[in-house]
Amino acid sequence: MDQLLQLTISGLAVGMVYALIGLGFVLIWKSSSVANLALGQIVLLSSWFTYGMLVQLNLPTLLGFLLVIIFALALGWVIERIALRPLIGQPILSLIAVTLGVGYFFEGLVTFVWPANSAALPRIFPTKPVQVGSAVISQEYIWIAGISLVIFLLLTAFFRYHRLGVAMRASADDQMAVQACGIPVTKVFSMSWMFSCTVAAVGGVLLSSIGMIAHGLVATGLKSFSVVILGGMDSFGGAMIAGPIIGLAESIGGGYLSAYVSGVTDIIPFVIIIIVMMIKPYGLFGETRIERI
């Protein structure tokens, strides 16, 4: 019973972080209909960058985080400016292929700069265990879930009420009409990449603060992909609900089954994707294409 509760809480918390990284996917999808396949590598790169700041340069935690955020914003700007902007107006498949290329480039860059296989960040959050019901869990899980939730609420409000957020949603619908309204579409795209890289970086830091920085972080990009497919590619709320579902399935399924079937943890999210794609191809909360009859 204690084990179940423990697995539930850690699953929920990790799921929230998956959801946060998934938001990075939704952001770009919503404004430009491009699938950002480099997300996992961005998570990896920014986690290692955090390691570089906090451990190798030994900067104070807050300053280090500030630099990480600035790094992520710059990263997003550079990716959009150099890799994607020249391809505006080209078939969407070439844009997606470019993100894949960007991803592999980052992976190579990480092995080049940080040849170590894995590293650990200093503990960022208090680790004192807290008692939840009958289970004892590390306080960190509550922190990372809380931070993910706050960022989610901020982004949702931004897209709903801020004029730039509304313009970003509009440009997902009709890029030409948006330009006819005098909105600089290029600015919208680079904003969405900057936001996306930032949430991916925060997600990466949260994940590696409770675990390790390792190559496996790239796979979390893929797991976030399964989160947005489950929740709907263009729905923030969907990602926020689907994230904990995937997290729970992974931790509970993994916790009970991995004794019998090794490696089952990593399969579960993808099994869920396949089932969802068969039943609800737009995801649980995705926007269906509007067709008036």
């Binding site: 509304v166 949603r169 509009a170 997902a172 009709d174 030409m176 909105i183």
Partner: peptide, 15 residues
Amino acid sequence: RVFEHLQTEENLMVG
């Protein structure tokens, strides 16, 4: 060419 997934008022505000 309306922004199909936006509300009427949001469409106007984009203008």
